[in-house]
């Protein structure tokens, strides 16, 4: 079998990795904030109606 070698993948520099990590952290924080915001907004939209149900 004539196998072709995979092209060599250049490695990320420490600077690339640091930026990637910082971006991931920021994205995580934004997503977390959105989860909290959507939850709070949902409760605010429901208002007192959340109690108006048959038990």
């Amino acid at each position: 079998m004539n196998e072709q070698p995979y092209p060599e993948v250049p490695k990320l520099t420490p600077e690339d990795l640091a930026k990637q990590k910082a971006r991931s952290k920021a994205l995580g924080l934004v997503l977390g904030a959105l989860v909290i915001l959507f939850f709070i907004v949902t409760i605010a939209k429901l208002g007192g109606n959340v109690w108006n149900r048959e038990l």
Binding site: P10, L12, D16, K19, Q20, A22, R23, K25, A26, L27
Partner: peptide
């Protein structure tokens, strides 16, 4: 092109 985004937050 660089392998990953070069942008910071």
């Amino acid at each position: 092109r660089p392998l990953v985004s070069q942008g910071t937050a």
